[in-house]
């Protein structure tokens, strides 16, 4: 018999209503409150050995305390799985359920919860644990219990887990390999015939969508503008004192150029691992054209050059890291009164 630790809030744990939202976590042997509805559908496979109840506000505002309490119970009861919620569309409860599941998973204990699709906790935790699709309010409990209990049994018995659609959980967004019945070429012909005949078909890979950036207000007069130079070409001071990485960079550096008129050979180099750096090392301005900006400054084509080089390595960098670094660089440039930017990449 497998063991399940159940988590729920003050309301479903029958402690009280919103007035009890600050109640501290407590554990009860066996089933309590809504845990009882899971007892019967799980019975051949698992037993709910204890129920943890915690107030929504308490968990939301004291997450570390909540987690510590949960860890203690896991160490005490050694459950095979934690079932949390379902929390339907309840925001704080949803986050608590997600966090409880994540904490359990970190300890190597399987964990599932159930949430309504608009619950913000879905986006926050779907990568960390299975979140089953349930209704918006507690009225959905009747459908939620068999769905969650059925899925829990599959996980507990090691049965094969179907697709997110089949099992009704939110996709984690993780690509997992599998072997299909027909080869790729035969599937391509099947898909093509469905497409050309107007029949439904399912692409095997949804394309990622990227946000189109709206251009901001243009510079009115270049000859008065302060221009900054940024690069993802991994240009760093020779010897790489800051240990800029060759790939998957998570930080950028702002290098002061002082009175320099160009990036001199031997003083700068590229550490980017994604291209042949010989040409950039011969003349770093081939990647970061600081020399030309200084010439154009002298000629009065542009007002001035921001005397810094913002540099990182753009090689397998994740979109999330790139976005954050862009925001950081933008703040720095705004503070320096920069009006426009040239960004080079390799």
């Amino acid at each position: 018999m497998k063991k399940v630790l159940f988590y729920t809030n003050q309301f479903f744990g029958q402690v009280g209503g919103e007035d009890m939202a600050y109640c501290q976590p407590e554990v009860t042997e066996g089933m309590r409150g809504s845990a009882n509805t899971f007892g019967a559908p799980l019975k051949d496979t698992a037993e709910i050995v204890a129920t943890v109840v915690c107030g929504d506000n308490f968990y939301a505002e004291n997450m570390e305390t909540g987690r510590a309490f949960l860890r203690e119970q896991i160490e005490k009861y050694h459950p095979d799985m934690v079932i949390a919620g379902p929390a339907f569309n309840a925001g704080r409860f949803g986050i608590a359920c997600g966090d409880v599941c994540k904490t359990a998973k970190e300890m190597g204990v399987e964990a599932i919860t159930g949430l309504y699709e608009e619950n913000p906790a879905v986006e926050m935790y779907k990568k960390d644990c299975y979140i089953l699709k349930v209704g918006k309010s507690a009225a959905g409990i009747r459908k939620a219990v068999p769905l969650m209990a059925g899925f829990a049994k599959k996980l507990l018995t090691g049965e094969k887990i179907g697709s997110p659609k089949e099992e009704q959980y939110y996709a984690k967004g993780q690509r997992v390999n599998l072997f299909r019945e027909k080869n790729g070429a035969e599937r391509a012909v099947d898909m093509l015939l469905a497409k050309v005949n107007g029949q439904p078909y399912e692409t095997e890979l949804e394309i990622s969508t990227y946000e189109k950036v709206e251009p901001s207000t243009p510079i009115a007069d270049l000859s008065k503008a302060k221009i900054a130079l940024c690069t993802t070409g991994g240009i760093v001071p020779f010897g790489n004192p800051d240990h800029m990485v060759a790939a998957t960079a998570k930080f950028w550096k702002d290098y002061a150029l002082g009175d320099a008129q160009r990036l001199e050979q031997g003083q700068w180099e590229s550490v980017h691992a994604g291209f042949d750096p010989v040409y950039a090392n011969e003349d770093p301005n081939r990647v970061a054209p600081y020399d030309m900006l200084k010439i154009l400054e002298k000629e009065g084509v542009i007002g001035s050059v921001h005397p810094f080089l913002a540099s990182t390595t753009g090689n397998s960098t994740s979109v999330a890291d790139a976005t954050r670094m862009g925001q950081e660089i933008a703040r720095r440039l705004l503070d320096a009164g920069v009006n426009g930017v040239l960004l080079t990449s390799t």
Partner: peptide, 21 residues
């Protein structure tokens, strides 16, 4: 940078990828 209000031009070789992102 564009979102922060600074016009920024991307100089790159495989421009279709820049467009995609």
């Amino acid at each position: 940078m564009e979102k922060a209000g600074i016009p920024a031009a991307h100089i790159c070789t495989v421009t279709p990828i820049s467009k995609t992102v």
